[in-house]
Design a protein around this nucleic acid. Structure first.
Lengths: 359, 359
DNA sequence: TACCAGGCTGCATTCGTTTGCAAGGACAGC
DNA sequence: GCTGTCCTTGCAAACGAATGCAGCCTGGTA
């Protein structure tokens, strides 16, 4: 495999560099084509190419291709203060929810020649702010933000300074920027409907952190749905982070008090935590307690039992966010838009009718 | 949520920009501190700060802080032709195997002030090559490559041109570059040992593509392990991509011929595909056929049944790769090193003794 | 034939930093 | 007291591309 023996036994460890041919510069192209660098620049640039005589354009382009010329994005950025780069702030790529979104962003943006800079913030405002600043220093043209807090001074401030950005999944209150998310409220409503139809009455909710929009929106939707069915809406445990551990703890707390027959998880990770708690206490899902998730991350259909969850079109979320940002960057659209993508409830093995009371 | 009503009802849609204060430049700092820009540059730069009188350094730094000065990485890159950025080439972030590795890379590199540029190649040489070139144009200082083919002209070429890079997980033959991977051979050996101990004799292998090192190394290790136990080593089906679909197809093929009592999957996705095939044909895992995976991706312990798999320290793989690259970039180390990290077999519910023949 | 208008192209500056070179000052040694 | 040597700092030229402005040439018109 790699590194067994050097490819070139003779050449020492990079002692004499093979005199790497320097990339041709615009000046090289110009002189080879017999024109001024300024002309070459205009000929190569799509926006200015019609300032140049067609014959000259052709010549310059031919020479550029034969020399293998590529613009130096660094130099261009310095001059134009743009970078054809957008920054993506994501809580944690290790959370299976995010990679599909990021891929959607990358694919869509890549198609328009943009490069993507990703950073993990671990929900830490300090890291978020540091990464944000670093990306701004690198002249990113805009941001795709998956980490927005409900009250987010950083984003608020950036938005007011006119920084182009699009929020994804997690939104912010009273903020005049474009955003795209799944229709969380309707997803929760469908979930509650489903459980009620199965016969459940004692339904609890393990809510995500109320510092992010997904947490409050889903929690509010849960309460409303329950009231709509004339059921108690106060069986809610709030967690402070979307994680399996938090879900487990919350569920143990619920089981300790009056055990519900069904639990609506704030997201899939919390639901998995509920599985853990049930297993520890010797209860069965779905025989004793039904559990539902949210997002329908990859592999959710293969859990034990397969998780009933709300499918959110993650990839499309990313694609749509990228589109909104592109619109904004191209100057076409200037008024912010909020897009809610439809979600669907996927019923699997983790939900079943409640156990018979008399049994 | 976002976009309900504008934060500033009065201000039109970004009609009059609030005259964003331009970032202070080095010149601003210099004149505010009463020194020449060159001096300011030296004072701010860690490497050159001892060329400047301590009192001057202090003054410049104070002024810089009060002005909120930050170097412009673009301008610096243009001058130094370095960028404090490294490129990461990954097949597909959506594959749960990779995010932990990438996070390891980001965390380690970020600690040294480097920024990470990620690109998905989808195992497509054309996309790989395009991304590679784009990153080089952006002056990345080095590469972390998770996409290497066993025979990889692109990487070969880059390595010979002296481009700093580290291969992760997938290695390349006869290539004199640093690399880090799990000890695949030993992982497979342990797996086969385990199955043999359980009593299996008819063991098959669903191998990954033989175009990447993981495919051939694991396949070779499988054959050797089988021979070591005096068993048939020719029950191997080779797939052309690591995916659930490929695993399913391969498994169906195996079941069609003489059914083995155990299958060693080339990785977890292939193993999951085997689950599918078994379920379709009405067979039970592990009662009829035992199945094992490789990598032990997140959630593997929660599958139905929980998957016996070889745990590879993914995050550490990324960290170690980043370290090797940092060493190379700092000029400390110049001779390539290949690091194999130890792996462990995690036994779960997908492996059991073979069914009784007479039964 | 002379003049004017456009269409193309060249010139020079600029973006913000880094860095080789040189000049200035201070201090010590003789 | 003069010269030599550091130690600091300033000067100016890059890095590679974009762009306002000016000038050239051509063609059309009076």
């Amino acid at each position: 495999m790699a590194g067994g023996t050097p490819a070139h036994p003779g050449s020492g460890p990079a002692a004499t560099l093979p005199a790497v041919a320097p990339r041709p510069t615009l000046r090289d192209v110009a002189s080879a084509a017999g024109v001024h660098p300024a002309t070459a620049s205009r000929a190569l640039n799509e926006a200015t190419r019609d300032l140049v005589r067609p014959a000259t354009v052709a010549k310059v382009r031919a020479v550029a291709k034969s020399l293998g010329y590529q613009v130096n994005p660094i130099a261009r950025s310095l001059k134009t203060s743009r970078s054809e780069t957008v920054g993506v702030l994501v809580p944690d790529l290790t959370n299976p929810l995010f990679p599909p979104i990021v891929r959607g962003v990358e694919d869509e943006l890549g198609g328009s020649g943009y490069t993507v800079l990703t950073a993990n913030t671990d929900n830490d405002p300090a890291r978020t702010s540091a990464n944000f600043a670093a990306m701004q220093a690198r002249q990113v043209d805009g941001f795709i933000v998956l980490t927005a807090l409900l009250e987010d001074p950083l984003m608020q401030d950036a938005a007011e300074r006119g920084v182009p950005m699009v929020l994804v999944n997690r939104l912010t209150e009273r903020l005049d920027v474009s955003a795209v998310a799944g229709d969380d409220a309707s997803g929760i409503a469908r979930t509650v409907d489903h459980l009620v139809e199965l016969g459940h009455r004692d339904i609890a909710h393990v809510a995500g952190p109320l510092t992010v929009s997904t947490g409050v929106v889903r929690e509010r939707a849960f309460r409303e749905s329950m009231r709509r069915h004339g059921l108690r809406d106060d069986r809610v445990v709030v967690t402070d982070v979307y994680s399996e551990a938090a879900g487990r703890t919350a569920m143990l707390g619920l089981l300790d008090r009056d055990r519900p027959t069904a639990v609506v998880g704030g997201n899939d990770l919390l639901a998995i935590g509920c599985y853990d708690a049930l297993e520890e206490t010797g209860l069965s899902c779905p025989d004793d307690v039904s559990v539902t998730g949210f997002n329908d991350m990859p592999l959710m259909s293969r859990l034990r039992p397969p998780l009933t969850s709300v499918r959110v079109p993650q990839y499309e979320l990313g694609v749509e966010a990228a589109r909104l940002l592109l619109d904004r960057l191209s100057g076409r659209t200037v008024t912010p838009r909020v897009v809610l993508l439809p979600v669907t409830l996927v019923v699997r093995g983790s939900t079943a009718p409640p156990p018979r009371v008399g049994a």
